[in-house]
Write a protein that binds this DNA or RNA. Structure first.
Lengths: 110, 110
DNA sequence: ACAATGTTTCTATATTTATGGAAATATAGA
DNA sequence: TCTATATTTCCATAAATATAGAAACATTGT
């Protein structure tokens, strides 16, 4: 993971509408949801939604697949996990008990 | 955790200079680093650095403490863990094996 | 009190990002 | 082919963010 990709991914969820979309998809699972349903659920106008979905796709945090007239969007868990790992990488220089996936839990400073 | 805080926290690291600063501090540990050393390490002008440190502080992702003339900045692991948990919250609607801290690892769609 | 060092605030400018209506494109059913 | 539905692209406008020099402020040692 390089820093540019990480910034791109973080930027894509550092925005209220997009974070809502992303979390909705994370919770929805692999099946995903058609764009229209996302817009209806979150009350986002179609063109605005499309703009945000493109941002998330471009960052690689969501996937899409076409099913007849619908385009289903779903979270990309692999990218997401890569991002989380990047953020906690080398946590505390390994001094404390800082597992990668369980993030950081260093003891208080003496 | 509310969405506004999450967006604030994400925005604060969704920028190359700030992500570098944050990761440096995550890796440095609780001891932290004085502003000047951060700027020297990452080659960021003092006023620019100060602006970014303020953003990170405001979001709650870093702490600071004064030691004589130096101001030591360090990562706030608690805030960080809260953010990671928020992102993976309710992952996959619980259908698959998606532990909170170990993020999401759903099986392929059939 | 003065000088040196570390950090922040002020300021202007440049750049990037978000919004949503209208028009365009794509798919499918009658 | 015509029509309805789903989604995207185009566009203009509004708003937020990043940059860094200069000046100001704070702390410590002499």
């Amino acid at each position: 993971m390089d820093i540019k990709s990480a910034v791109l991914q973080l930027s894509s969820i550092a925005q209220e509408a997009r974070l809502e979309i992303f979390r909705l998809l994370v919770q929805t699972g692999l099946e995903g949801m058609p764009a229209g349903s996302i817009g209806e659920t979150l009350e986002i106008p179609a063109s605005t939604l499309s703009f945000h979905l493109k941002e998330l796709s471009h960052a690689g945090l969501i996937n899409s697949r076409q099913v007849s007239r619908f385009i289903y969007y779903s979270a990309n868990y692999e990218t997401m996990n890569g991002l989380l790992a990047y953020l906690t990488e080398n946590c505390c220089a390994g001094v404390n008990d800082c597992g990668l996936s369980s993030a950081c839990n260093p003891k208080e400073r003496k």
